[in-house]
Amino acid sequence: MKQLLTNSCLLLALLIALCSAPSPARAWNAKGHRLVAAIAYRSLTPEDRDALIEILKQHPRFAADFERQMPDVVKSGTKDQQQEWLFGHAAVWPDYIRGFKGEESDKYHRPTWHYINWPHYLSDAEAAELAMPPMVNRHLDPAMTPVLEQNLMQSIARLRSQFVDSKYSAEERAVMICWLLHTMGDLHQPMHGASLFCKPLFVQGDRGGNSILTRQSGNLHAVWDNALGNDDSFREVNRHATLLLATPEMTKIGTASQASIEQKTWLEESHALAVEHVYDQAVLSHVRVQMLTAKNVDDFPPLMLNEDYLRNSSKVSERRSVEAGYRIAAVLRQLLHP
């Protein structure tokens, strides 16, 4: 009996450790991507919605990854509800395929397309010293890097160019829609357009905040990925999108944002937001103390973010989700009607 209790305690401890360990951050979480896609969908004309959905239905994995995944409540709903769900699921699909194995993973999974480590430095001296770290791809021109290794900015530029090229099939364009919805949404998440570089901890960057451990969500990147909430049900996404679009200030922000549909502008905005709101004084003070006392990021206690920080992350993220949705709609209109 004593041995059984000991084993049970060890198992419980292991489960707690696994549940509390920082998970690898991805992008906006599923709620964030579905919310951005819902705003984009509602910003399109009915004709453009239908045209995009017809292309999406040519997706080589449409039956397995879309039709079979559609919730019953959506299946029994209206055509418009079904199409909006498909749009949101397309935006999530590039994260969904992270679970693929073997040939399917090789064919579709592109881990480097989700981010660009655009630098933020602690000092001018470090900016000069760490200006060109090896293994960090900051190129903006797709031609500079092989397709499988391209960063977020390169992948968006290439996808926008290829979508209007008649040599690509409907199946290929359907996959492109998924990646366009996803990557353009990602670029509006501040931590997908910024990375802190400093010595000795982050000479290759902090991987968009993934290396700064926090009590909430595991790490700084994940805090911002989850800033729009975690409930990605159709009902919740519909409620949140309706609330944002019913707010005159938000619709004004969204409409104004469509004047800038070049991804370099979006990168500059996200980076500036990261500098101002993500890497605030509390976060930077934590990093500076960590630099002095720890040789490894895992040897330092996680940062506890205060409620003001978390509320602000949600506020900033809601605005970015609206800007992303309106801009994605504008880009898709341009691609459909070149």
Rank of each mutant, 00 (worst) to 15 (best):
Q334G: 11
G254A: 06
S166V: 10
L243A: 15
R158P: 08
R160Q: 14
H33L: 08
F234M: 06
S76C: 11
N7H: 09
L86T: 02
A40D: 04
K264V: 05
L14Y: 01
L284H: 10
R98D: 08
A91Q: 07
Y309F: 13
I177G: 06
E276L: 15
F202Y: 09
F234H: 05
V322E: 04
V36S: 05
S169Y: 00
P22I: 02
R98P: 02
L243H: 14
Q58F: 04
N296M: 04
G218W: 04
H277W: 14
E54R: 09
A157Y: 03
H271G: 03
L44A: 04
K31R: 15
C198G: 00
H271Y: 05
P301L: 13
W28F: 14
I16H: 05
Y279Q: 05
E172W: 07
A91N: 05
L273G: 00
R320D: 03
S285N: 15
K57M: 14
W118K: 09
P301K: 07
A127F: 09
A259S: 13
R138I: 08
S169T: 03
L303K: 00
L310V: 08
D280N: 15
S169E: 05
Q150G: 06
P190D: 01
R333S: 01
L44F: 13
Q334W: 12
N238I: 04
L305Q: 03
A17Y: 07
L310P: 13
A294S: 15
V223T: 07
M176S: 12
Y326H: 13
E268C: 09
L86A: 01
G193L: 03
L15R: 01
L243E: 12
F197R: 01
P94R: 08
V278L: 10
T247L: 13
E323Q: 14
W93C: 05
W113V: 08
Q162K: 14
A227E: 12
S317T: 07
V92M: 09
S105F: 11
F100T: 02
L213Y: 04
V73I: 12
L213C: 03
R319M: 14
L4R: 14
E103T: 02
S161H: 12
I156E: 00
C9V: 12
A241I: 00
I253P: 00
P46V: 00
H221V: 07
G32N: 11
D165Q: 11
Q58K: 10
N210Y: 05
A37T: 00
A157F: 02
M304H: 10
A246F: 01
A294W: 05
L44K: 11
E171H: 07
D308T: 08
N306L: 11
Q258K: 15
R42A: 02
L336E: 05
S76N: 15
V289A: 15
I212L: 15
R68C: 02
Q216K: 09
R61N: 10
A194Y: 11
H188G: 01
S321P: 02
P22E: 15
Q334L: 12
T78L: 14
V74W: 09
V175T: 11
A143L: 12
N306I: 08
R68V: 00
H33Q: 10
N117I: 01
F66S: 00
F66C: 06
S313H: 02
L284F: 13
E67W: 12
T255W: 08
L5G: 01
Q82L: 05
E149M: 13
G88I: 02
V164I: 10
V297T: 09
G208F: 02
R239P: 00
A259C: 06
A241S: 14
A274S: 07
